[in-house]
């Protein structure tokens, strides 16, 4: 018998984090100046969250606990596309 977990989970964009990154970008010691042509250079930041690895992991695991799929039980063919 499956009973759905229920978390009061906000959308990931509603989390209020600042300055956090959940992924360490590998960096090389290279001296190159970034010169994007003026006409196309981006001036505003993309609208993405700023969260730690733990916050992101918890968010997606909570969502997965609330969902049902073939890995948990019967999912008849064509019941989803």
């Amino acid at each position: 018998m499956w009973r759905q977990a229920k978390w009061d989970e906000p959308l990931i964009t509603e989390y209020r984090g600042t300055g956090r990154i959940g992924f360490m970008v590998p960096k090389e010691d290279i001296e190159v100046t970034i010169e994007i042509p003026e006409k196309i250079r981006r001036r505003n930041d993309p609208e993405l969250p700023q969260l730690s690895e733990l916050e992101v992991t918890r968010h997606f695991l909570r969502l997965s606990q609330m969902s049902f799929g073939v890995d948990l039980g019967m999912m008849p063919p064509k019941s989803l596309r």
Binding site: I12, I21, F23, P26, K27, I30, V32, D45, L48, V56
Partner: peptide, 29 residues
Amino acid sequence: AIANAVFLSLLGKDGLRELAEEVYKRSHY
């Protein structure tokens, strides 16, 4: 698509810029 969402959530706005800058720098090098 969920894997894409997880990846973008981990990087976030600063991480995405850092990654793009690193790709830019290495390719120019």
